[in-house]
Amino acid sequence: MSKKNILLLIVLSVLLISCQFSGTSTTGQREIDTHIGFDGLTAEFSKDAPPQVVFEESSFPILLKVRNNGAYDIKEKKGTITIGREKDYVTGLVQATSTKVGILSGDSASFDVDGKSILNPYGEEILLQWNAKTGKLDPQSEIKQSVITATLCYPYQTILTTTLCIDPDVFGLRPGKKACNVKDMGFSSGQGAPIAVTKIEQQMIPQGDSIKPQFLIFLENRGRGTPVNILNYHDICAKPFSDTKNLWNTVRIKAFASGNKQLICCLNNAEGRCSESETQPDKMEGLVKLSDNKNFVRCIFQEKDAIPKSYDAYTSPLKVELTYGYVQSISANFNIHKPLKY
């Protein structure tokens, strides 16, 4: 190295040492948000189970992969799956059990599957396995196309937590800057469940010397199935031919503001009316019937939780819980061949 270069190096070193920019690097752990997306459970038949071609009077495997892509855990074997088949051509089903899967009947199974968590950000996947037996084809038939369906019925919950603004200055007459401003909130990324809260409109309703905040909570079914009443979801899979009228597209909603202060959500009774004076927690739940996969519900502060008009604006947490059953189906086609006998 020439002397010139050494000199240059010294000068540069001095510059770097003396006027060094002291930047700090952060190597913080990346936060995982499990309450995101529009999926609940996803199910798919294994590529070769059922196989594309099976033979009459033989057995073949059915393998179904069920993954919980949402944020809610299905526990206590509350998930139900029913296999639909053409009973003349698929004459028998024998199910394999595991710790996560239980038998309900030959064609139905119950299961647990955990949702996404910090420890498992992809959600749990379980395998359900059956051994099916084909029947005899018609004497004149050489081949028969058949179909197997899997219908999943499971309870699910959407939980949204957000921060809302409570501003007793309803008409914005107070001078000066506020800690927050009341505005509509949009949620385009979902909450890790098939039914999503898509928007919340906030309104501060004046009432004497206080205000009662009110929220219009907009819901949408963004999943690949249909919601059903949480109380009857099991019947859809267990009793396929029972009367399911008025069960579909029903979601129950509970909302809490300012910590654990439950809001009264309307409509909240079976007659389709709203009682704003309810004090019993279970009667404060709203009942929403989705139409074209959408609807909204109105939730309001209880009388006793009204906020004095003299307060300044402040932020407060809001928690919305949607509870529903969810039903979705998939199918797989396969061909039953007569074996060659010559």
């Binding site: 937590t161 921060t163 800690a179 809490f256 910590g259 654990n260 402040y314 932020t315 407060s316 809001l318």
Partner: peptide, 17 residues
Amino acid sequence: VQNLDSLNVEKYEPVLM
């Protein structure tokens, strides 16, 4: 922060003024 049960959410984002 008052008792955790009353918070009822995993996070709360106030603006201190």
